[in-house]
């Protein structure tokens, strides 16, 4: 594979500055509604604030890749004496928990850094975080070219994992017939 230039988008997360407002969740879910901004539902957001005020846990986490199986074990971070829960820092949409999944269908959610046309100046969660807990940086890097898995493919794969290949194929066949009618 050849080397290509790639823009790396970085969101810097400063936990000390987070006030726990969940504005990032609000704007992310609204932006990704169809049509855009037509609804709000933080449960659909691709950033989730893990928030446990009494233990001072304020941890915004971005949705990363979908995984069909949970990890073999668990990890648990202790930072400056503060213990986080198992999996708190993980970005995966994973069968072990219900974050980063569409509430009804269970389809995985993934942060797209707010892909948009024309592109957003900054990701929306960053724009709505007035406390600068989230800030945005860009840099360029040389990386190996890779084949990108399409959104549809990721979605289908997760449905297959959830319901089995046969059921998904049957359903698609049935839906395509009914759409043609």
């Amino acid at each position: 594979m050849s080397k290509v230039k790639k823009k790396i988008k970085v969101i810097k997360i400063d936990l000390d500055k987070c006030n726990g407002c969940r504005a990032c969740e609000v704007i992310c879910s609204s932006f990704h509604a169809k049509p855009k901004y037509s609804s709000n539902n933080p449960a659909r957001s691709r950033i989730r604030l893990i928030r446990e005020p009494l233990r001072d846990v304020y941890l915004p986490v971005y949705a990363g890749e979908y995984t069909k199986a949970e990890c073999m074990g668990r990890d648990k971070y202790v930072i400056d004496g503060k213990e986080y829960n198992e999996c708190d820092f993980c970005r995966a949409s994973c069968p072990s928990r219900d974050v980063f999944k569409e509430p009804d269908s269970g389809l995985p959610l993934k942060c797209d850094m707010c892909e948009d046309d024309p592109p957003q100046e900054k990701p929306l969660c960053v724009q709505w975080c007035l406390n600068d807990a989230l800030t945005y940086e860009e840099r360029e890097e040389e990386v190996e070219e890779e084949v990108k898995q399409e959104d549809v493919e990721i979605g289908l794969e997760s449905m297959i994992n959830q319901y089995g290949l046969q059921k998904v194929m049957d359903t698609i066949a049935r839906i395509s017939i009914s759409k043609k009618e």
Binding site: N19, G20, C21, R22, A23, V26, P53, L54, R55, D56, Y58, C129, L130, N131
Partner: peptide, 26 residues
């Protein structure tokens, strides 16, 4: 411990209060 807000608000009118020896509250 931290200044905190309400849902979807950038202000920070509240605080988490941890007095040594008694349980935390807001």
């Amino acid at each position: 411990t931290r200044l905190i807000s309400c849902y979807n608000c950038p202000m920070k009118c509240g605080a988490i209060i941890s007095v040594p020896g008694i349980s935390t509250y807001m």
